[in-house]
């Protein structure tokens, strides 16, 4: 992998849990587009191993599904730096934990944005619900806008 990439995208979730696979679908769509300066990967959860990878980026975009009452609704939030955010006991990290790790280990402070889409069903199933599928074009447009802003 090139270390000169500017934007790194992580789509995470469980593709066997219905709408929880949203992050994978979106990240794989970005991989197909092969946008210059953009690298995307998929994973089940955020882990410490990702800290090194994100530290080389100017912008990190995280894509996840969330539970809620408005299926298909997209939310966006800036992940802020919290030196105490790293989780000590669990297998996975919070977005803030990743950012804290990148700062502590590599002195990196990339901008990090978390994009979430409200899911309809997280039961055992492959594939997204119609509501979440319908939100995908908007989600990808938002990601592309963020990428342009980092150029």
């Amino acid at each position: 992998m090139s270390e000169t990439r500017q934007v790194r995208v992580i789509g995470f979730g469980n593709t066997l849990r219905g709408d929880d696979g949203l992050g994978w679908v979106a990240a794989e769509a970005l991989q197909q587009q092969t946008l210059p300066g953009v690298e995307a990967l998929t994973c089940h959860q955020l882990t410490l191993d990702l800290v090194e990878w994100i530290s080389a980026a100017r912008l990190v975009i995280l894509i996840d599904a969330e539970a809620g009452d408005s299926p298909g609704q997209i939310s966006q939030r800036e992940v802020s730096f919290d030196p105490n955010a790293a989780d000590t006991l669990h297998h996975h990290q919070s977005p803030e934990g990743l950012l804290a790790g990148a700062r502590a280990l590599y002195g990196a402070a990339p901008r990090m944005v978390l994009l979430t889409v409200c899911g309809k069903s997280f039961e055992f199933a492959e594939g997204l619900s119609p509501e979440v599928s319908a939100a995908l074009p908007d989600l990808l447009a938002r990601i592309e806008a963020l990428i342009r802003s980092a150029a």
Binding site: L48, V51, A86, D87, T88, L89, G97, G101, A104, L105
Partner: peptide, 19 residues
């Protein structure tokens, strides 16, 4: 007393572990 505490005090060791 965890890998995150290590990051603060011994970042080179933590980096080596990840690497």
């Amino acid at each position: 007393r965890s890998i995150f505490g290590l990051m603060q005090m011994y970042p080179e060791v933590a980096r080596d572990g990840i690497r």
